[in-house]
Design a protein around this nucleic acid. Structure first.
Lengths: 328, 328
DNA sequence: AACTATAATGAAATCGATTACAACAGGGGG
DNA sequence: CCCCCTGTTGTAATCGATTTCATTATAGTT
């Protein structure tokens, strides 16, 4: 079903049908005939041809390091919600943590496959930075804060700072921080800095704060906590970079026969759905992932629409909320 | 950068460059010159124009009822893995449980936006069934078994049947089944039937099996379990349609002061990552979601490639594995 | 040498929509 | 009555790749 067939069925030119669809001057009479013909045929304009002519893709690309993650899937959820409103499709690109793929996707998506990009958990290697600098379509980075690029990110530093303060206020002095690699600017470096700053500000020396690095899994949280309890049996508090790590750490504490929160306080970050069903319910710093996705998408559409007035590059700092439960 | 510019730079015709890219007879000499020109310019053929001419989209559509779900995200992970190998992009469509959207996406994606569809958690309303019957592109349904369509699905019935048997073998007689709505053929109807069959086959009457319906959340599992314990204080076993429900149920049992597994046995379905970190670790029927996604994608590509020889419509039944932990 | 099959090549048509342009009609102002 | 402006309309060019077709060159066969 092409525009010409619809046109001849309605007894008008193809241009008239196009005007009907895209808004152009047209008599009410023809308008009616075209409406009829379209309803009758169920005609939908070919998006490839339309794209070919106008150059406007109604898709955006979302690049993620993995999909099976509470945080990532919530952000993606927010992005899809806004895109649906706008009639845009979402192209989901899973790099599986592979930097080369990240770079490849960035360059490939520009080639008429996406009107803009949302990138999460970007690993800012020189190659990726280069790809972004040369990027022909607008993009927004989520979850991490790079001065040079538009991004939507969390207040990772203060979230952990606040959590740590709470644990210290409970009288804990021998505290462990289970973090993730500094390669991850936000969940790694920023959160760790928050933990250290809080400790130091409260008179706990940086050296006496126990720091262990984990991957993003509960299993690695379990292993790290086991190690901490082995090497520092007097540990009485633990703050985890993510709730998933906290789940593992909590199991290790249980295995060691220690009580939470009597013997050891524990806290996480993220407000995962299972936090309130843990035993005891986990104190956490809630992050607004869904909002993050929505904000990033809205920002991207502003850039795509050019509503930006070439205005200042935007950096959106999201808030966090301490959810105090019984684990500290 | 168009094919003509590259061509003139290499001193050949546009057709020659196209032949270079798509395979056609071409002298080694021109081949070399074109290789040069492409490297120099970084030319990438315009996918819109290519699509326009050939009609071959290198995208597939994935329609999901929600994204924030362990099962869904793992399946999607499997799909993206196969698509990446094949150089296809994945268009992720989140219907958020809205049936109209499901139908709309199915019809919209056919319009040159996808070479095929993978649909999960389809709600087979007449409208959706109609949309599928008229679908111009191949599609595969995951997680549910419809005779009339190609699908990849789990052995939901036997998974729960086996779990239930284990609980009964532990000597439990007053058992509750926390399920989900029958609207969901697989997780709802099939699993419930498995629970009932097992009970009946073991001499427990259908009437004495306690059945409560939940949504897919831990909170609803908590509420349902609370209700069960209130109305049937002698309950000594509970099987849940999903691990998430089990997490909620387990918390309700704890709240009620009952011990697991001494007083009550509990089991779930899905093998969520947090199962082994629960207290006690949760016995579950592991489902192979990643494999499900991969199989569905492979099946779809067979259909797209036409390797099917118009062969029989395929129905893939996945296996399950009982993971026995300490909760029963 | 004559002939045929095969490879190499470019010009031009094509996919289906949008849009610049030209043509024309009708209305209002002088 | 003429001019100009605005609104309606269709024709044809266009986007950038692929592919058909016709042509020429080359090799292989009698």
């Amino acid at each position: 079903m092409t525009i010409r067939e619809v046109a001849s069925l309605a007894g008008v030119s193809a241009a008239a049908v196009s005007r009907y669809l895209n808004g152009g001057s047209l008599s009410e009479e023809k308008r009616e005939r075209i409406r009829e013909a379209i309803k009758e045929t169920g005609y939908q304009p070919d998006s490839a041809a339309r794209l070919m002519r106008t150059g406007k893709v109604h898709q955006i690309g979302v690049i993620v390091p993995k999909i099976c993650s509470d945080a990532v899937s919530r952000i993606v959820d927010g992005v899809t919600a806004i895109c649906r409103e706008r009639g845009f499709l979402v192209v989901l690109c899973n790099t599986d943590g592979n930097r080369d793929l990240e770079k490849n996707y960035i360059s490939f998506l520009q080639n008429r496959n996406a009107a803009g990009l949302i990138i999460m958990g970007v690993s800012m290697t020189p190659a990726v930075e280069d790809a972004l600098k040369n990027c022909q379509v607008p993009f927004v980075i989520t979850g991490q804060n790079y001065e040079a690029f538009p991004c939507v990110f969390n207040d990772d530093f203060h979230a952990v700072y606040a959590l740590m303060n709470m644990v210290i206020k409970r009288g804990r002095r021998k505290i462990a921080y289970l973090g993730v690699s500094d390669e991850d600017l936000a969940a790694g470096s920023e959160r760790r800095r928050g933990a250290v700053s809080s400790a130091v500000d409260s008179g706990i020396s940086e050296e006496s704060l126990i720091i262990e690095n984990c991957s993003f899994s509960a299993a690695s949280g379990y292993a790290a906590m086991e190690k901490v309890l082995m090497e520092h049996p007097d540990t009485d508090g633990v703050v985890c970079a993510t709730d998933t790590i906290a789940v593992g750490a909590r199991a290790a504490i249980r295995k060691a026969g220690r009580k939470v929160p009597e013997d050891i306080s524990i806290a996480g970050v993220g407000d995962s759905w299972m936090d309130e069903f843990m035993d005891p319910p986990l104190t956490t710093a809630q992050l607004f992932h869904l909002q993050c996705g929505k904000d990033a998408a809205k920002m991207l559409f502003h850039m795509i629409d050019g509503d930006d007035d070439d205005g200042p590059m935007r950096q959106t700092l999201l808030t966090y909320r301490i959810v105090e439960r019984d684990s500290i």
